[in-house]
Design a protein around this nucleic acid. Structure first.
Lengths: 195, 195
DNA sequence: CCGGTGTCAATACAGTCGTAATGTGAAAAC
DNA sequence: GTTTTCACATTACGACTGTATTGACACCGG
């Protein structure tokens, strides 16, 4: 066997470049040559590690969900251990809002993939599982504090709200603190008023 | 002067074809030739009515906001005249959810433009005004019934929620009736419980 | 009736796209 | 030391893109 290279590392390098390209120019700006240039490598090398563009896109999508799940884990780990459901939900949702530049960059890419998924059902499948888990988790948190409302519906509402607010922040329709205010107002209605 | 043609009508014909193309293949499938084929005309004719592709896209975006605002007007006109704020908000938000195929088609196109706007600030400007108006209107409705919560934040939350739920419905993460349940659960929290 | 003008059609052009094929060099295996 | 095999680089190809250009045809004012 000849030279040994860490495939995973090379792929990560390329996918990172893809993210930067997509964050600044949208998914339509993503081409083998653009990504290669951004990564500082030749187009041939990109082709060597991803046989097809679709494969590269699939890896990028997986990278996004993996990145956000890592963000969630980090936020939960950094928070004080015993937490009320309300605080747990707030921590989770605020870490998912695009409130600083790195998260905004990821957010822009995620939106592009969302639009892509609205048209390409195959991509939607990869996102579905994560969303379902989040909804179920939120529903559990709601169920823990009130029995007078549909917990499943409230859970879907919580992360749906986060998603919508994220969109508005990304498009500049809403400032970051306005999004947080909207989120807190909703959280207060769900968690701090009893039946 | 030679033959007289209704420019507006021709443009509408082309934009309609563009919508169909974008609804089924995303914004990246929109090309002069594709749109022309879908409209059943030659590419030269499309070029005759839209000097550039950007101009065509601008018209398409305007067409989308115009179409949704028409939907709103129709829904409000069809509803019984004296309405409680809660009913008004519910009517408005449910007509904006992509619950049937025509609205889903429009929704898919809208999502594409949303992703486009996240990268192209010029397009975001066209959407901003409509969103701001909706938020303000929602805030007014909230203010009319409760004084104990931040009405502006609650308004942003209402239409943010609708947007997020729309996204999930379009991507198949949520069924239409589940989205309505989530919406109603939220509405009940905002409107039916007093301070 | 007749130039002129708006409406459309056809084609050319330069660029980019994804993919395939081929070539080069170096490191590991034997 | 030879040979194999992986890691890249380069180039070629056909398809497609947006735009510019040119031309035919029909209509209408004079």
């Amino acid at each position: 066997m000849p030279k040994k290279v860490d495939h995973q590392e090379r792929r990560a390098l390329i996918i990172d470049a893809l993210m930067r390209v997509a964050a600044s120019g949208g998914l339509e700006a993503v081409s083998l040559r653009h990504v290669a240039t951004e990564a500082g490598v030749t187009a041939g090398m990109v082709q060597h590690y991803f046989a097809t563009k679709d494969e590269m896109m699939r890896f990028a999508l997986e990278g996004i969900v993996e990145r956000t799940s890592a963000r969630i884990d980090a936020a939960m780990a950094a928070a004080p251990s015993p937490m009320t459901p309300a605080a747990t939900v707030r921590t989770l949702l605020t870490t998912l809002l695009p409130l600083d530049e790195p998260r905004r960059a990821d957010g822009r890419v995620a939106v592009s993939f969302l639009a892509y998924a609205a048209v390409e059902p195959a991509a939607a499948g990869l996102l579905r599982e994560g969303t379902q888990q989040m909804i179920a988790f939120m529903a559990d948190q709601v169920r823990a504090v009130r029995a007078d409302i549909d917990a499943e519906a409230a859970g879907a509402g919580l992360i749906g709200l986060m998603e919508g607010l994220s969109l508005y922040v990304l498009n500049g329709h809403l400032a970051g603190d306005a999004a947080i205010r909207a989120l807190d107002t909703h959280l207060r209605l769900v968690f701090s008023s009893e039946a």
